[in-house]
């Protein structure tokens, strides 16, 4: 019998790339926590536990043409769309060269036009109508472009989720709504956010298909998002996909999750860590040797060390440059 990834249309090379990117994302995330705890960077928001969903989804798209509207945990997705470790470190250190914002925004507020990573803000879910707008532009121009927008399950309660999904449904726009359901919105569990059994149950209200899938399985996510993207490109409209995962860290570096969930619960979640299960998968598929794994860890360590050193030493933007870029013709601080 064919291996699972081959059934999903993934080559050996691609599937190992996915694993490597998941590992890179995790190691980068872990480093950021270390930097935060040692007082070098003020803030971390983390994607640990959601890498499989993010990377499975990103790999299912055309990363040279499609648009990504990420939310703050999507380190895996933005890396897959072409942002570099160095660039993410520059953002963590809030340095001038940070392509997301030049150090203006907190980390996790992604944006990079050349890679079609659309700039985001802090008020949750505002990116959802933007994804519909980008898809509307693609449809008007008859370009086979898809927009992928992500958000948490708590955030799916915002009006902008409803307004954006309804708009995309009515106009049959090529949008993929990816809800990364990690079961908590800061401290509030799913059952106190949503009365429906699944977020995907809402899809019917927007006239689109909805799926709830295992977000710890990157191949399942790839397959589901790929189908949605194919449908979108055929002009068959949007899809709502919900990936079930666990948030393996506190909400952010400013949160202490012991106040609202037990150590046992976190321990159980860690047993489902997608990095571990995917590692087992690629090893059993004969795609990752012990030797290659060690080499990979070394390569990643090197990339992250280099990026950290670079970002730490990089200059801040000048204080006066705060005055720039209010409007197209804004001068000041130059």
């Amino acid at each position: 019998m064919d291996q699972k990834h081959k059934q999903a249309g993934l080559t050996d090379e691609t599937v190992i790339q996915m694993y490597e990117m998941m590992l890179l994302t995790r190691r980068l995330d872990e480093r950021m926590w270390l930097l935060n705890r040692s007082g070098k960077i003020p803030f971390v928001v983390s994607g640990q536990g959601q890498e499989a969903a993010q990377i499975g989804a990103a790999f299912a798209l055309n990363r040279d043409e499609d648009y990504l509207l990420p939310y703050y945990r999507d380190f895996g997705a933005v890396l897959a769309f072409g942002m570099t470790v160095k660039e993410l470190m520059l953002s963590a250190f809030a340095k001038a060269e940070d392509p997301n914002s030049g150090g203006r925004q907190m980390p996790g507020h992604f944006g990079q036009r050349k890679n079609r990573i659309v700039t985001g803000s802090s008020p949750v879910t505002t990116q959802v109508p933007h994804a519909a707008g980008i898809a509307l532009a693609a449809k008007m121009d008859q370009k086979p472009i898809v927009s992928l927008v992500t958000f948490g399950e708590g955030s799916s309660n915002q009006g902008d989720f409803h307004e954006g999904a309804n708009f995309a449904g009515v106009h049959q726009l090529p949008v993929i709504f990816l809800c990364e359901n990690n079961q908590y919105a800061i401290s509030v569990p799913y059952t106190k956010q949503v009365a429906a059994k699944n977020i995907s149950d809402r899809a019917v209200g927007y006239g689109m298909p909805g799926f709830t899938i295992d977000g710890n399985d990157p191949i399942a996510v790839y397959q589901c998002v790929k189908n949605a993207a194919d449908r979108a490109r055929r002009g068959e409209g949007p899809t709502l996909i919900e990936t079930i995962t666990c948030r393996l860290t506190p909400h952010t570096s400013d949160d202490d999750d012991r106040a609202y969930r037990t150590a046992d619960e976190v321990k159980k979640a860690k047993e489902l860590d997608p990095l571990l299960s995917f590692r087992t998968y690629v090893k059993e598929a004969g795609l990752l040797t012990e030797e290659r794994e060690q080499q990979l860890e070394q390569e990643i360590l090197h990339i992250i060390n280099e990026a950290t050193d670079y970002a730490e030493q990089a200059p801040y933007a000048s204080p006066e440059s705060s005055l720039q870029h209010v409007y197209a013709d804004t001068k000041g601080g130059e």
């Binding site: 959802v128 109508p129 980008i134 532009a137 693609a138 307004e163 954006g164 708009f167």
Partner: peptide, 28 residues
């Protein structure tokens, strides 16, 4: 109708969709 679009009755989407379309090169 593609260029004079009747939207659903939802103002945040009217603004938000316009914002998205403008970032993809349109002039809404």
């Amino acid at each position: 109708e593609a260029r004079v679009l009747d939207t659903p009755l939802a103002e945040s989407a009217i603004a938000g969709v316009a914002i998205g379309a403008s970032m993809a090169g349109k002039r809404p």
